[in-house]
């Protein structure tokens, strides 16, 4: 569960001026919910995610993750960034085991789990490869497997597929949808793609340009599991059209 109450963030630039990045953002994401945030560039989406991940120490308002205030990185939360950020000197397997190593949980105990995750993201046979031997899409899959290895309650995804081509993106979205349903994680996804947001989410949060505020929250009522055909239905088009309208007229 994620709660933010009047979350406000002011950055001080190097020149000394203050930039209001987030203005009283309040939202609640329940256990097992999949919520996406869409909004124009620079509206503070990454800032929200970084605050939730415990990477930004100073902010105003109340922020809770799993019912305790955020004071730094928590093992209950895992992050996947826009760049896969795989360590180039580590193999796929060792990249996935990095969080286990960092938290000293005993790598040996997690090998079986790593193998499961590698299978889940469709990378069986690539355990021993280096990141430089993988495609962009494969790297993002590794990054997601790495986020899942410590079995976090919450998954924070910052445009994980933003740099990929449309077809790879569709495939990975399907997989993400399947993984989220199968594992029951609470997921917060940041994306620029309205289609992606509607397809994956139980709820879509639409934000205004800077200073970032929540303009509207839209519940998406499609049953799961969802197939990619859903995206070409009229009902789906209504959702995306509506969000597009909100984004253009704020």
């Amino acid at each position: 569960m994620i709660t933010t109450d009047a979350l406000t963030k002011t950055y001080v630039t190097r020149g000394g001026e203050s930039v209001l990045a987030l203005d009283r953002v309040s939202m609640v994401i329940g256990d097992g919910e999949f919520v996406s945030i869409v909004g124009p560039s620079g509206c503070g989406k990454t800032t929200i995610l970084r605050i939730l991940a415990g990477l930004i120490p100073d902010f105003e308002g109340r922020v809770e993750v799993e019912n305790s205030p955020v004071k730094g990185p928590s093992p209950a939360v895992a992050v996947a960034f826009q760049d896969a950020n795989l360590l180039p000197w580590r193999t796929v397997l060792d990249n996935i085991l990095l969080p286990i190593e960092i938290r000293r949980l005993g790598k040996a105990k997690y090998r079986a789990r790593a193998a499961e995750l590698i299978e889940m993201v469709g990378l069986t046979g690539f355990e021993g490869k280096l990141p430089s031997e993988l495609s962009g899409g494969m790297r993002q899959r590794v990054s997601i497997a790495r986020a899942l290895i410590q079995d976090p309650k919450i998954l924070l995804l910052d445009e994980p597929f933003g740099a990929l081509d449309a077809m790879t993106r569709d495939v990975l979205n399907l997989e993400l949808s399947r993984i989220a349903t199968a594992t029951g994680k609470t997921v917060l996804l940041i994306t620029h793609s309205i289609t992606e947001a509607v397809f994956l989410s139980d709820r879509v949060v639409v934000m205004s340009p800077r200073p970032g505020r929540i303009t509207e929250t839209i519940d998406v009522h499609f049953p799961r599991p969802r197939g990619i055909d859903l995206t070409s239905t009229a009902e789906f088009g209504k959702y995306t059209g509506n969000i597009r309208k909100i984004l253009n007229y704020v």
Binding site: G54, P73, P75, F81, D83, N85, L87, L98, I102
Partner: peptide
């Protein structure tokens, strides 16, 4: 990005130095 990643995993300064 590597540093963000390591921080989000709760890495200590020492771990960041030697592992990243």
């Amino acid at each position: 990005g590597f540093l963000d990643l390591a921080c989000s995993m709760g890495a200590s300064r020492w771990q960041i130095l030697w592992k990243i």
